[in-house]
Simulated scan of single mutants.
Amino acid sequence: MGGQMTFAEEPSLARRRKETKRERFLREMDRVVPWSRLVALIEPHYPKGGSGRKPMPLERMLRIHFLQQWYQFSDPGMEEALYEIPLLRQFVGIDLGRDLIPDETTILKFRRLLERQDLAPKIFAEVQAVLQESGLVLQEGRIVDATLIHAPSSTKNRDRRRDPEMSSTKKGNQWYFGMKAHVATDLQGVVQEVKATAAKVPDHQMLDALLTGEESAVLADRGYDDPQVHARLAARGSQDAIARRRYPGQRQGLKALQRYNRTVARLRARGEHAFRVLKCQFGYRKTRYRGIAKNLAQITTLFALANLYMVRRQLLGKR
């Protein structure tokens, strides 16, 4: 990007002997995100500007948008962080002496542009294309899984009610309110497909939406143990590696069932790595917006960035 500053240009940072975790993270992500390809993807939809005030540089706004995903900044919080944190300004390419910092309304409008033009799935697809070109996607089989994302349950809002598109579900002995993120990954944990539903939707009902039908093997936990699922996988010729439930009254074959489930659990463990990045690395544990569509757009972008993060060392090694 024109005028992009390097991390060494800030004298106060250049004198440091130790690189902080945030500096290292941003340096690595700056190198692995395909900025030029994503900018070219969004550019046809981005305002060109006329004789009046020119729009903010597109790559700058995209970098700000990704910072929001990585650090869970709200729109006003993102604006304030850019004023307060020099490292974030360097990553975005803002020099306070000559550049304006986008206000929260500008940041909001950029996010809504991505939502309105349905660009999150295209960003995800572009990242997948980069990984495939680098030989970092395995095609042999798929691991499917789902995770609960909490939603605010308070009714202290303008509508005086909870989000009608979210729902409650019980896991163990605890009730949760929110949505589910359903994903299919390759055998090394790189996410290939993302869907979102209300929390009450059973996991196995989303299996077909996550698969292409050409998978050689499908691995999943006991939430996908359903007779119709097993029948469909058998009809496709896919190896059925779904963990089995212990049914009430079952007495025979329990040790064999435990061994089988442990084997499946070891193999499908990589499918949960993306959830760890989403919730622990990026701090995404609760929905920010109302409605499934807006939150799906956000988690689709988050999983695209999570894929880049998980294979960043391989990508850096190829450059």
Rank of each mutant, 00 (worst) to 15 (best):
N261P: 02
R268I: 05
A129M: 09
W175Q: 08
L302W: 02
Q239A: 10
W35H: 11
L131K: 04
F275I: 14
A129L: 10
V144H: 09
E193K: 14
S167A: 11
E215F: 07
A297Y: 07
F282I: 00
Q4T: 06
A231V: 03
L302I: 13
Q90P: 08
A209L: 10
E126K: 05
E165N: 01
Q69G: 12
E43W: 09
P76A: 02
Q239T: 05
K279G: 03
L119F: 10
L308Y: 03
L100F: 11
A14E: 07
R246Y: 14
A120S: 15
D240M: 09
Q258N: 13
L108Q: 06
R63S: 10
T105H: 13
R270M: 12
K255I: 01
S74T: 12
R37G: 11
Q132N: 09
E28T: 14
G3E: 02
R232I: 06
A306G: 09
A231E: 07
E23K: 03
R22F: 05
Y176N: 08
V201M: 13
G50I: 05
Q68D: 06
Q192G: 05
A217R: 01
A184C: 00
S74K: 13
Q314Y: 02
T6S: 15
Y224C: 11
D163R: 07
K200G: 01
R246D: 14
R16C: 03
M78H: 01
T147V: 05
R236P: 09
R142L: 05
F303E: 05
T155I: 13
I299W: 01
Q139H: 15
S12K: 14
M56L: 15
G3C: 00
I101D: 13
G97S: 12
C280N: 14
